[in-house]
Structure formats: C-alpha cells, structure tokens
Amino acid sequence: MSRVEVRKTHKLYIGGAFPRSESGRTYEAVDAKGRFLANMAKASRKDGRDAVLAARKAFGGWSTRTPYNRGQILYRIAEVMEGRRDQLTTQLREAEGLSPKRTEAVVDAAVDRVVWYAGWADKYAQVLGNANPVSGPFFNLSSPEPTGVVAIVAPQGGGAGPRAADGQGPLLGLVSTVLPAITTGNTVVVVASEAHPIPAVTLAEIMATSDLPSGVVNLLTGSSAEIAPWLATHSDVNGLDLTGVDDPELARTLESDGAENLKRVRRPSDEDWLREPTLSRLEQWVETKTVWHPIGV
C-alpha cells in the first residue's frame, strides 16, 4: 500500500506568524485544469488591519537596519528560495499548467530577481540621492528614505490579465513587486494572487526562515477586491501598489480612496516580469529628504 501524503494547511503570514483567517473562512485553490489543490485562508478586513499593524510595528526596526544588513537578509531569501526551487517549480506548474522548462525559467528568474534587489540595498541611495550645489555656504544633501507601510496587490496570473499565460504573476510578479519596497526599508502588506496563491505561501515560509524580521512582509490570501479597499482607506498605509488590480473601475476607486491620506499610488500595469527591471519601483517607495546645514567656523 502506497504512503498517504501529509498535506499542509495553507495560512496567512502576519507579523512573522502563520495564522488562519480570523474570519474562519477558506476558499479553494485549484490547478490549471480546475482540480482541487488546497483550501486557502480567505483573509478578512480584520486580517488586513492586523497585517497593517504588524507592518507598522516592524517599520522602525527594518528602516533603520544598515543597508548592508538589509542586503544580506534579502540575499538570504534568495539562498533559501534556491533550496526550495523544486517545491516552487512543482507548485507553480500545478497552478499555471506550464511546461516544466517554462516553469523553471520563471522560478529561476524569481530567485535571480531577489538577488538583483538584494544588491541594490546598499547602492540605491547613491544613485537616487544627490549632493546639491546650492548658491550659499551650506552643506546640502538629498537622500532617499522609505515611505513607510506599502500595501501591494500582487500580479494575479491564472487567467487574469494578458500575460496570465506566461505564468509569471503568482511568484515572479510577487517578488518583483514586494522586493523593491522592502529593499528601500519599507514594510509591506501584500495580497497574493487570488487564483494561484500556493507559491506565495511558500515564499512566506521562505521569508520566515531567512532572518527577515517579523512583520516586514505580511502576506494575505483571498479576494483582493474584498481586502484592497480596506487597505486603500487605511490611514496607516502610506503607499498603494495596484499593479495586480485587473479591474480598471476597482483601480480607480482604490486610487481615489488612497487620496484621503495622500497615499503614494502606483497604478495597475501589465509587465513582462522576465525583463530586467529599472529603478522605477525602488524610486516609487522612497521619499527624498534634503538636509541643510550652514558652513562656517
């Protein structure tokens, strides 16, 4: 008699812990052919608010780590991802139904993307900052600082958006939106791909074992249309990344709601995540601070 598999309960990732949804709700994740894969926690408004709380709590510590230290931790995420490459590949292939070769290319790109951003942690300030030659006896320096708590609707994949067939969204799209925000010292609440959330939960487990402090990334599974409005109106959220919002009307409402506390908003986009990124997403979640001091004896 063959061995019976030990299945895993897939949960949310909030403040470094893996709770079920406080609402007690779940929904079914299915594979590319519509077959049952797992019951996923269906995050509620309360889960969203708990996640924002955890992200805010983590912000002070994470944003004041040395850039070198942040880079090391992000690189560690890539190291642990590499070790769980087979698991990620299997989960992504089940979800998206891609060829093995294609799936591997996407997973490899996701790992490499993390390495790319890890390397930026102690460099972007030199590229985005400036010494300003003011016309007077003043020291004048502009440097980028993190915006704060960033809420992200990650690329969806799985039948949503024109690039869905590429299978990039659930993992590569996720790391490509989350990493730039945390590289610059922000903390994140991310709503994972609704249809294909399992690779995202695995990524959360990877982050939880990569020395990433609790609360720096908080990951919710469930309906982005249900959760995102609570994040868009939350006054302790400073940035809103709508990359994965496929419904233009929902995107408009979320952007408009975000105006209440002047959230920085990144509008939806459909990108080829396999392309090497620009600095755009790093620049998106920083504030330029300019410090003046007189020069004199």
Binding site: N132, V134, W292
Partner: peptide
C-alpha cells in the same frame, strides 16, 4: 519631513529638492 534645516531655516535653492 522632506526638508530638514539644521541651524538654519527657510532656505531654498533651485538645485535643492523640496
């Protein structure tokens, strides 16, 4: 805050982001 003036205040310059 986007601009911090130390031992000075209300200084502006076209080269200096505000």
């Amino acid at each position: 805050a986007g601009v911090v003036w130390a031992n000075t205040f209300n200084k502006f310059d076209p080269t200096s982001p505000f």
